[in-house]
């Protein structure tokens, strides 16, 4: 009696919607296959331990060598420097915005951070190479460094990541109930004590998530390191040295024209797979942490 008119049109629409949603999943599966198939080709020719543990990266040399360690050290250097910049500054900005700023002040300061987040990475790369490395490090400070350095790339990458760390940890701090701040104040704590001893620990898992997301952005960032970190794959021993990161290698290798299926082409995907695995792991940790701080209140 209540069956109503059949609506074939709506059934079609629902299928279309579902297919659209599935695109997201197809993309992920696509990424996994796109990376794995050539990577398998790569590992047929290069033993996986030679890749992961080898300390010489020279894929295009006559006596080719595929040890990824040099790329990983460069990535570690730029990521570590970026975190040294972005974590303290991002958390400081977040505490200021969530614990001290009036709503009006917050309204003016947050868009500035958004602009910082919106600057294209290629422009950051230009800034890192032409201003930070060339003008500041070499001309002004007369540092003993070449045309590129992991320090310049890492510093600028850190600035780029400040808004990410600031905005996610500010969300976490704002989610801490007002009543905890009142309870702390009523016991005779000042704002600094309330911020550091109540708000910060209560928001800790969200703050960790922000840092972890910052790590994943730093590891995956390409243009800044491709422009300013350098292009020689050697183990990096200090911040003023140049070095090629994992992403830097993929970007530089793309400049040459490698034949599909060649070892050179497959090498791109082996490094890409490693990069993907690292960021995916890091991101899963972040999602779990965020979920934990959502549950807390």
């Amino acid at each position: 009696m209540f069956a109503g008119r059949a609506r074939p049109g709506e059934a079609v629409i629902k299928v279309v919607l579902r297919v659209a949603a599935a695109v997201a999943m197809v993309t992920t599966i696509g990424i996994v296959f796109a990376l794995i198939v050539p990577a398998i080709g790569f590992f047929r020719e290069v033993p996986i331990f030679d890749f992961l543990l080898g300390d010489r990266w020279a894929p295009r040399f006559a006596d080719a060598s595929f040890g990824v360690v040099p790329l990983v050290t460069a990535t570690l250097w730029t990521t570590a420097i970026a975190l040294l910049v972005s974590v303290p500054l991002g958390l400081g900005a977040a505490l200021l915005l969530s614990e001290y700023a009036t709503p009006g002040l917050r309204k003016t300061l947050k868009p500035i951070l958004e602009i910082l987040a919106g600057v294209p990475t290629v422009v950051y790369g230009f800034f890192a190479l032409q201003f930070v490395q060339s003008t500041v490090f070499r001309e002004w400070l007369r540092l003993d460094t070449g045309a590129f350095s992991v320090l310049a790339a890492g510093l600028v990458m850190g600035i780029m990541i400040i808004p990410t760390v600031a905005s996610i940890s500010e969300d976490a701090m704002s989610a801490v109930p007002m009543s905890l701040r009142q309870g702390s104040a009523a016991l005779g704590a000042n704002r600094m004590q309330t911020s550091l001893r109540v708000v910060f620990p209560a928001a800790l898992s969200g703050i960790m998530a922000a840092i972890v997301l910052g790590i994943s952005r730093a590891v995956g960032e390409t243009m800044i390191v491709a422009i300013a970190a350098g292009s020689q794959a050697r183990i990096v021993g200090g911040p003023l040295e140049q070095g090629q990161t994992m992403t830097g290698f993929i970007a530089s290798a793309a400049l040459g024209d490698s034949r599909v299926g060649s070892l050179e082409y497959n090498t791109l995907y082996a490094v890409g797979l490693l990069l993907f695995a690292i960021t995916l792991t890091v991101n899963f940790i972040s999602i779990r942490l965020v979920r934990r701080f959502r549950q807390a209140y």
Partner: peptide, 20 residues
């Protein structure tokens, strides 16, 4: 997936498009 994809490095999408 949607949550994870948002954090995949952009250059990986280049590799995907290239493979496709």
């Amino acid at each position: 997936n949607v949550q994870n994809l948002a954090a995949v490095p952009s250059i990986i999408y280049g590799l995907l498009a290239l493979a496709f």
